[in-house]
């Protein structure tokens, strides 16, 4: 079985400046290619910055916008997952991640869960996506995308795993807290615990790419990493600075874990469906 070399593009976007961020992405893409990567994954809203508020309206573009052309063209040489505010034909705005491969956009994921509490106000500005789908990833694999908060809803990785995902890609704009008693930032420790558990439960690779930098004093903690299907972290960067690192995914280990611990094989989707149908009526 194949292995896939995946580059984690831990960038620090300029708030509201899509062209500048396309340039940053292009530089990281060149670096990823020179390091022999097959795929490069960028953080949530890497092309726009995160705390957009009313800037959402100004930075939004459609997937056919010329500003994205360099990234799509670059996907002739390396697969690219990039994220931006996508404006749909009906002028709904989404937090989206587009997967470009072979010089075209092969898949788009629109963020499903928009945090609107505490410091987050996504629900004020963008519409929620409505589809959980996997797509062909390199030659022999399937992948699914969850954008940041999507991953905090276990139904999303559950559905992606059942749809056949070998690899879950998570572009994130995760803010950190230095204080609060956890060994790293509270949020960072939570991400690690959660994704290591998911990787084991769903016997898949998980690629977490978090942005860095500051916006209005808000600190994004970086620390992008990859978890293997046995729940072990197999690569990443232990830094909250800009970084690009390449991690090799060995798809053989997905096969091995799924035979050794066949949780997905034994998953009773009918039981889940029946129970959910009843619960949904009551909610």
């Amino acid at each position: 079985m194949q292995s896939i070399r995946i580059a984690l593009g831990q960038v620090s976007p300029v708030l509201g400046d899509v062209s500048a961020n396309v340039q940053t992405h292009m530089a990281a893409i060149a670096q990823a290619i020179s390091q022999g990567a097959d795929v490069v994954v960028f953080p949530e809203l890497g092309l726009t910055g995160y705390l957009l508020k009313d800037l959402t309206y100004e930075v939004a573009c459609s997937l056919t916008d010329p500003v994205l052309e360099p990234l799509i063209k670059a996907s002739e040489d390396i697969d690219v997952l990039f994220s931006m505010i996508e404006e749909g034909p009906d002028h709904r705005f989404y937090v989206a991640a587009a997967y470009a491969a072979g010089g075209r956009i092969a898949h788009v994921h629109r963020k499903l869960y928009l945090p609107t509490y505490g410091l987050f106000e996504e629900g004020r500005h963008v519409a929620r996506g409505g589809a959980v789908e996997t797509f062909d990833f390199r030659d022999e694999a399937r992948a699914g995308v969850m954008i940041c908060e999507d991953a905090w809803h276990p139904s999303v990785p559950y559905l992606l795993a059942l749809s056949g995902a070998d690899v879950l890609l998570i572009p994130a704009s995760g803010p950190g807290r230095a204080l609060g008693g956890d060994p790293n930032s509270g949020a960072q420790a939570f991400w690690e615990r959660m994704l290591r558990t998911y990787a084991q439960l769903f016997s898949c690779y998980i690629v977490f790419v978090n942005r860095v930098g500051f916006e209005d004093g808000l600190f994004f903690f970086g620390h992008s990493f990859v978890v293997a299907p046995d729940g072990e972290i197999v690569g990443g960067t232990d830094s909250h600075e800009r970084a690009l690192c390449v991690v090799e995914l060995d798809l053989e280990s997905v096969r091995r874990e799924r035979y050794r611990t066949p949780l997905l094989r034994d998953e009773d989707v009918h039981l889940t469906l029946r129970t959910l149908a009843k619960l949904a009526e009551r909610r």
């Binding site: 708030l15 509201g16 910055g49 705390l51 957009l52 508020k53 009313d54 800037l55 916006e215």
Partner: peptide
């Protein structure tokens, strides 16, 4: 309802 982050101007 004129809501921009401070870093917008930077």
């Amino acid at each position: 309802d004129f809501r921009y982050p401070r870093d917008w101007g930077m």
